[in-house]
Computed example of a mutant assay.
Amino acid sequence: MNSKQKQSKKRQLIVLYGHYCWWCGYSLKENQLTIEHLYPQSRGGSNTIENLRLSCFKCNNSRGNSLYPPNWRMGNCF
């Protein structure tokens, strides 16, 4: 995705899910949210809105290409 496409997807996700990290539930400003692939691209995941969520940098970065962040437990990863 180019930067224009990312910004458009991010706005769509904010409308759908709000300004929250999908994994830990923290409320964040738009510029603190990263686009997260539920099913990682390295495992064949797509850039469709159904496969994308918003997350904080910590959850997104710690997850790598696993399906869940380390220590993730029902809505709270840290």
Rank of each mutant, 00 (worst) to 15 (best):
residue 33 L to K: 15
residue 26 Y to W: 11
residue 51 N to E: 04
residue 8 S to D: 08
residue 12 Q to P: 00
residue 11 R to N: 12
residue 62 S to V: 02
residue 3 S to W: 06
residue 21 C to P: 00
residue 5 Q to E: 15
residue 68 Y to S: 01
residue 70 P to T: 04
residue 16 L to Y: 08
residue 16 L to D: 10
residue 75 G to N: 01
residue 30 E to S: 13
residue 48 T to L: 06
residue 65 N to P: 01
residue 35 I to P: 10
residue 23 W to R: 05
residue 78 F to C: 14
residue 46 S to W: 06
residue 29 K to C: 08
residue 29 K to L: 14
residue 31 N to Q: 15
residue 58 K to V: 15
residue 71 N to R: 14
residue 43 R to W: 02
residue 14 I to H: 10
residue 14 I to R: 11
residue 7 Q to A: 14
residue 33 L to R: 12
residue 29 K to F: 15
residue 59 C to F: 07
residue 60 N to E: 04
residue 45 G to Y: 00
residue 20 Y to M: 14
residue 57 F to C: 01
residue 17 Y to M: 00
residue 27 S to T: 04
residue 78 F to Y: 12
residue 51 N to M: 04
residue 51 N to G: 05
residue 65 N to E: 10
residue 71 N to H: 13
residue 61 N to E: 10
residue 48 T to V: 03
residue 72 W to I: 04
residue 45 G to I: 04
residue 52 L to H: 01
residue 57 F to L: 12
residue 18 G to W: 09
residue 42 S to V: 00
residue 6 K to M: 13
residue 25 G to T: 03
residue 42 S to L: 01
residue 18 G to C: 10
residue 40 P to T: 05
residue 44 G to P: 08
residue 52 L to K: 01
residue 19 H to L: 13
residue 41 Q to M: 03
residue 51 N to S: 03
residue 47 N to I: 07
residue 74 M to N: 13
residue 2 N to M: 02
residue 43 R to V: 03
residue 58 K to P: 11
residue 67 L to K: 04
residue 67 L to A: 04
residue 32 Q to R: 15
residue 9 K to I: 12
residue 66 S to C: 00
residue 17 Y to W: 13
residue 64 G to E: 05
residue 41 Q to I: 07
residue 27 S to G: 10
residue 6 K to D: 08
residue 52 L to D: 02
residue 4 K to H: 09
residue 75 G to L: 01
residue 20 Y to L: 15
residue 38 L to K: 15
residue 41 Q to H: 09
residue 77 C to V: 05
residue 69 P to K: 02
residue 64 G to S: 06
residue 56 C to L: 08
residue 50 E to C: 03
residue 34 T to D: 15
residue 65 N to S: 09
residue 75 G to S: 05
residue 18 G to T: 11
residue 3 S to C: 00
residue 16 L to T: 08
residue 12 Q to D: 12
residue 61 N to D: 12
residue 59 C to V: 06
residue 71 N to K: 14
residue 57 F to V: 03
residue 47 N to F: 03
residue 55 S to R: 02
residue 43 R to M: 07
residue 54 L to T: 09
residue 23 W to D: 01
residue 63 R to V: 03
residue 6 K to Q: 14
residue 39 Y to E: 08
residue 47 N to A: 05
